[in-house]
Structure formats: structure tokens, C-alpha cells
């Protein structure tokens, strides 16, 4: 105990000041405010004097769970995000491995693969909205009929479009991971008589675990939080099958002016994204500062 205090005193803690202050102003204060607002009956009638809004403890949370579509929206958000994340894995890995070896035009191919990822979500949403119209290109090409932007198929439309826009992230991280696999490891494996499949399975993939799982985590969190794409694609009010959490939160705030309720929903979604994040941090031991064992 004594020893620990001694080492602490030796540290120049004041150097935390700029960063600490920034964290306080940018993260801690707004977060505390958000938590407080989620306990208020804050709406269009009380926004002007918001500090004076009625304190209603956890009523907003009760209302969110009992009377709103929150639980349904969480279900939709998690289900589609998980599907998209799972879908990103084979696509991203395959593309990374396919563009690993040098060939003519590789730079171009690599750039083209990133296009969906760098396009703004608004552009992606508007474009796919046109493609998926009842008389749009998608129905014409696949000979299908009917709706993609409402009804049961809209859920799959969301999965497909989000997958299209999101998979290059996994590709990018996998490609970066591949670069770091030392050439000598490949040589050693080849000398031991490993074929391409064995090399991939026992040499390359284990080394990609770190970057790829980071990619999948970011992808999952990004999907759970994605607002623009579903908003542009389906509009508000959301069709029931694609009523995702961020859009629901938005509607409560900016269409229904139920700010307290909306913030309560936002707090719930914060907890939601914190869970996989905590699992990941635990797994890579970033939280202990000791690095993976």
C-alpha cells in the first residue's frame, strides 16, 4: 500500500490537466446532463426553462419500455446489426486476401473496393432508395414485385444496403492485418509443406484475429448507431419492420418533442453499445493497460 502511494506521488499528475479538462467538458458534463434530462418531464412546454422541468425520476424509462416501441426497436437494431456484421466477415476477408498478392491494377481495385465506405450515408441512402422503389431497378433485374422499402422485406433491404456500405471497413482492417504478416512466416510454412488452404487456416487467419475482430466490433457499433441510412432510406415515421433505435430516438425528440423520453432512450442505447465494447476491451486487455497475454 505504502509503496503504491509513493510511486503515485512521483508522477506528474498535472499533465493530465488539459486532457482531463477536455474529457470533462466534452464527455463528462454532457453525459451528466443527459442522465439528468432523462429524469425530467422535458417537452416543448418546458424547453425554454428546462432546468425547471418537472423531475419525474424513472418515469421516462418506464414509459420507454412499457408504452413506446423501444424494446421492438432494440430487437430490430441488434438483429440487423448482427446480421450485417456477420456478413461483413467473409466479404471483407475474401476481398483482402484476393487483393493481397501483387497484380496489375491492384491499386485501382483496392480503391474501388473502398468506394461504398467513403460515400456519405446520405448518398448511399438516396441511391438505394431509387434502386429499391417498387418500379425501380432492383425489382426489374430480379424479376421481383412489390415493396422493399416497407413491409417484411424492408428489414432485408436494410441489411443488404448497410452491408454494402459497411463491409469495406472489415476489408480495410483485414488488408492492414495481412500486411503485417511477415513474409518469412509464409516461407517457413511453405518449407513445412503447407498448401494454400493450410497456410490460410493456420498461419494467416490467426494473425488477423486482432484487426478483424476490431473491425467487426466497430462495424457492429456503427450499425447500432446508424441514423442517416435508415432515415434516408425509409423516412419517418419508420415502417414497423425497420424501426431502428436511433430513428425512434430522433422522432421522439424532433417530431414529438418528448425530449426527456428521447434522452432516456439514448441512455439505453448508450448502455447497449457499451456492452460489446466492454467485452472487447476485456478481451484485448486495453482496460488494464497490460496488453494481451
Amino acid at each position: 500500500m505504502n509503496k503504491r502511494t509513493a510511486t503515485r506521488q512521483g508522477r506528474p499528475l498535472w499533465m493530465f490537466l488539459p486532457g482531463g479538462l477536455l474529457t470533462l467538458v466534452v464527455i463528462a458534463v454532457p453525459l451528466a446532463l443527459a442522465l439528468y434530462i432523462s429524469l425530467l418531464d422535458l417537452d416543448q412546454y418546458s424547453i425554454r426553462e428546462w432546468v425547471g422541468a418537472e423531475f419525474i425520476a424513472f418515469d421516462n424509462y418506464v414509459e420507454a419500455v412499457r408504452d413506446s416501441h423501444l424494446v421492438h426497436a432494440i430487437g430490430i437494431s441488434i438483429a440487423y446489426s448482427a446480421l450485417v456484421t456477420i456478413g461483413c466477415l467473409p466479404l471483407g476477408l475474401a476481398a483482402a486476401i484476393a487483393t493481397q498478392d501483387r497484380f496489375k491494377g491492384r491499386g485501382l481495385v483496392r480503391s474501388v473496393l473502398l468506394v461504398p465506405y467513403v460515400l456519405p450515408a446520405f448518398v448511399v441512402g438516396s441511391t438505394w432508395r431509387i434502386i429499391l422503389q417498387p418500379d425501380g431497378i432492383a425489382n426489374r433485374i430480379f424479376g421481383t414485385e412489390g415493396l422493399w422499402l416497407n413491409g417484411p422485406r424492408s428489414f432485408w433491404a436494410l441489411v443488404i444496403v448497410q452491408l454494402w456500405a459497411g463491409w469495406p471497413l472489415v476489408y480495410l482492417l483485414a488488408a492492414a492485418g495481412l500486411q503485417s504478416v511477415d513474409a518469412t512466416v509464409h516461407e517457413a510454412a511453405a518449407l513445412d509443406g503447407a498448401g494454400p488452404w493450410a497456410k490460410l487456416r493456420y498461419v494467416v487467419l490467426p494473425q488477423l484475429r486482432g484487426p478483424v475482430s476490431l473491425g467487426l466490433l466497430i462495424s457492429f457499433l456503427h450499425n447500432v448507431n446508424s441514423f442517416t441510412l435508415p432515415f434516408v432510406l425509409f423516412g419517418v415515421p419508420s415502417p414497423y419492420d425497420v424501426e431502428v433505435l436511433p430513428v425512434l430516438t430522433y422522432v421522439e425528440s424532433f417530431q414529438n418533442f418528448e425530449f426527456g423520453l428521447s434522452v432516456a432512450m439514448a441512455v439505453v442505447s448508450l448502455i447497449l453499445v457499451a456492452i460489446p465494447l466492454a467485452v472487447y476491451l476485456r478481451a484485448v486487455r486495453l482496460d488494464t493497460g497490460r496488453g494481451p497475454k
Binding site: P134, G151, P237, S238, P239, Q255
Partner: peptide
Amino acid sequence: TGGWSQVQLALTNVVVQSIPDLSA
């Protein structure tokens, strides 16, 4: 009424959720 925005949204929502049937 200050509640009109919500009424408006509720009215529109009925149409949004009826679209699958409408399409059929």
C-alpha cells in the same frame, strides 16, 4: 395545440404501416 405535431405524425403513421397491404 402544441400537440399537433404528434397528431400529424400519428395520422401519417397509419398510412406508412398500411403500405404493405396497399401494395398487395
